[in-house]
Amino acid sequence: MFRRLYSMKVLSDQFRQSMSRVSQQAMILTSGTPHATPINQLHGMTLGSVCSLSIYPKPVLQFNLHLPSYTSRELHSCRICAIHILPPSAESVHLLRIFAKGVKQDNQKELVLGTSKEEIRDGRIFHEMTRPFEKLEQNEFRYHDVDDVKVPILNEAEIVFICKARENFKVDSHEIWVVDVVDILRGGDEKSGGGGGVLYYNRGFHSVGESLKEIS
């Protein structure tokens, strides 16, 4: 029987390279906050792990957060979040980079977008320990009230799932969350770009391409 034994480092490298060939739906999560929270204390992050866990008896989503995470701390506190599906546009990519810690300062102290050291190391953009709302203008988002919690909603989004946390548990450096979808918000009719959201593949963002022909 054919067997191949890897050291853990080699196995991790092979796994990273293999998974970089798999596209992931890139979405943005924003966490709920008390009414008095200032803008620079709002939190959120780019996700590549959102999946539908069930539809009946109620819609449920699952995702994971990379730790340490300000967003995780807020979720544990408020238990409310919004998950945004974005149109395939340049503005969406800009937001995804901001919420993935892909913002840094150049030599002229200006904010520029690019890959982070974590993304170069493991091939994943989905890291978080930053304050993305500091990079946004006030007119780029609004608040949605859920019970006694305010949830930031990005105006660029096509679809937003409003969610309440149900369960979570930690696995190594990640935290897996299961959330109930309690409401769905939809963007205006002016949103365009063909739909399909934004895909992250091979350290870059892509839109959905042409349908594959099926063998009859």
Rank of each mutant, 00 (worst) to 15 (best):
R3Y: 05
R3D: 05
R4K: 15
R4A: 10
L11M: 10
S12C: 06
S12R: 14
Q14D: 13
Q14F: 04
F15G: 00
F15Q: 12
F15A: 14
R21V: 06
R21G: 07
V22Y: 09
V22E: 01
S23E: 04
Q24F: 11
Q24R: 15
A26E: 00
A26Y: 00
M27L: 13
M27I: 07
L29K: 00
T33H: 02
T33R: 00
A36T: 12
A36P: 00
I39S: 05
I39N: 01
Q41T: 02
L42V: 01
G44C: 12
G44W: 03
L47N: 04
V50D: 00
L53E: 08
S54A: 15
I55S: 09
P57A: 08
K58S: 10
L61K: 00
L61F: 04
F63G: 04
F63I: 12
F63W: 11
N64H: 11
N64P: 00
S69M: 10
S69L: 12
T71H: 03
S72E: 11
S72D: 14
H76A: 14
S77Q: 13
S77N: 10
R79T: 12
R79V: 10
R79L: 13
C81L: 13
C81T: 06
H84G: 07
L86I: 11
P87Q: 08
P88T: 07
S92N: 04
V93R: 09
V93T: 13
L95W: 07
F99Q: 07
F99I: 11
G102S: 06
K104E: 08
K104S: 15
Q105Y: 12
Q105S: 11
D106S: 12
D106V: 14
D106Q: 09
N107S: 10
Q108K: 13
E110N: 15
L111D: 09
L111V: 12
V112R: 06
V112D: 01
T115W: 02
S116P: 05
E119I: 07
I120Q: 10
R121Y: 06
R121S: 10
D122A: 07
G123N: 05
R124V: 12
F126C: 15
T130E: 10
F133G: 06
F133A: 08
F133P: 02
F133V: 11
K135C: 14
Q138V: 15
H144E: 09
D147N: 12
P152E: 03
N155F: 01
A157V: 12
I159C: 08
I162V: 14
E167W: 02
N168Q: 12
F169C: 13
K170Q: 15
S173M: 11
H174A: 07
H174F: 09
V178D: 00
V182K: 02
V182F: 05
V182N: 04
I184Y: 00
L185W: 02
G188S: 14
G188Q: 07
E190R: 01
K191F: 04
K191H: 09
G193R: 07
G194I: 13
G195E: 02
G197R: 02
Y201V: 13
Y201P: 01
R203G: 00
F205I: 06
V208T: 11
G209W: 05
G209T: 08
S211C: 02
K213S: 07
K213I: 09
E214Y: 05
I215Q: 03
S216W: 03
S216P: 02
